[in-house]
């Protein structure tokens, strides 16, 4: 049995001649917020895709709570307690924010009775509370297609949290959000994660976000984890400044 919540061992995947992951080994500890940084095309999203079963690696394994999940489907992995939030929010655009949450709660609880209205499931209050926690309670009854990118991002994460996951993988949680609101969004998010007791891994390009909200940082380049450590240590590393940041933080 491993002590880590999630563990990737020797992952390898190629797209034609491009190496998206090569002998990648990365562990996620329970309760931490791990940030993954790196230049575009480094393989960060590919890593999340492998961990959630969307892509199958040509070599290596992924373990979640000691169980191998490498060949499982996204929905099987989700059922084990791994949720995902996306760079482009993946919501049901014809439904309202609250309906998106209620659908997620129904999926979690397995409400299959065909004659119960979605709006009357017992988890309604819990979902409303979650929406309020991400500061979207006031738009609960609006179709998500009418909401701003920032709100959709938060609802996307709230939908993932509605599943009561053990681990949440987030792809650029603040991309598309106005720079003036990024820290506010992240603040809301980190608080919601802490309240739900969820471990997180997030891919991020904004180093001020990484510095402030990550417990640990993994630097990714050319499909390989180049460096790992605390934010202060990693973000001041000369290679990271040169290859990822481009300037001093």
């Amino acid at each position: 049995m491993t002590a880590y919540l999630m563990e990737a061992r020797g992952l390898e995947i190629r797209f034609g001649g491009v190496v998206a992951a090569q002998n990648v080994t990365l562990e996620v500890k329970e309760g931490q917020n791990l940030a993954i940084i790196g230049p575009n095309g480094a393989g960060k999203t590919t890593f999340l895709n492998i961990c959630t079963g969307w892509l199958k690696p040509s070599a290596g394994s992924v373990y979640f709570r000691g169980k191998e999940i490498t060949r499982l489907s996204p929905r099987q992995i989700c059922r084990l307690g791994v949720a995902r939030a996306f760079q482009i929010p993946q919501l049901f655009t014809e439904h309202t924010a609250l309906e998106n949450m209620l659908i997620a709660a129904s999926a979690r609880e397995g409400h299959w009775a065909p004659f119960t209205a979605l709006s009357r499931i017992p988890e309604r209050e819990e979902m409303m509370h979650l929406l309020e926690m991400v500061h979207c309670g006031d738009v609960a009854d609006r179709p998500v297609v009418e909401l701003s990118e920032g709100q959709r991002k938060l609802i996307d994460i709230a939908v993932a949290l509605a599943l009561k996951p053990r681990l949440l993988l987030m792809d650029e949680p603040t991309s598309g959000v106005a720079s003036s609101q990024k820290h506010e969004v992240m603040e809301i998010l980190v608080r919601a994660l802490a309240a739900a007791g969820v471990t997180s891994v997030f891919v991020e390009h904004d180093m001020s976000i990484v510095e402030r909200y990550a417990d640990e940082v993994a630097v990714w380049a050319a499909g390989v984890v180049q460096l790992r450590g605390g934010p202060a240590e990693v973000l001041e590393h000369p290679d990271v400044i040169r290859d990822v940041i481009g300037e001093t933080v």
Partner: peptide, 28 residues
């Protein structure tokens, strides 16, 4: 109408808008 308004009915309708999210909710 009851079917379409039920949780399973709504899940069924989300096949139209976002199958990716549906899978990441643990639903086939």
């Amino acid at each position: 109408l009851r079917f379409l308004n039920s949780p399973i009915g709504h899940l069924f309708q989300t096949v139209k808008t976002n199958e990716t999210r549906l899978q990441y909710l643990g639903i086939s």
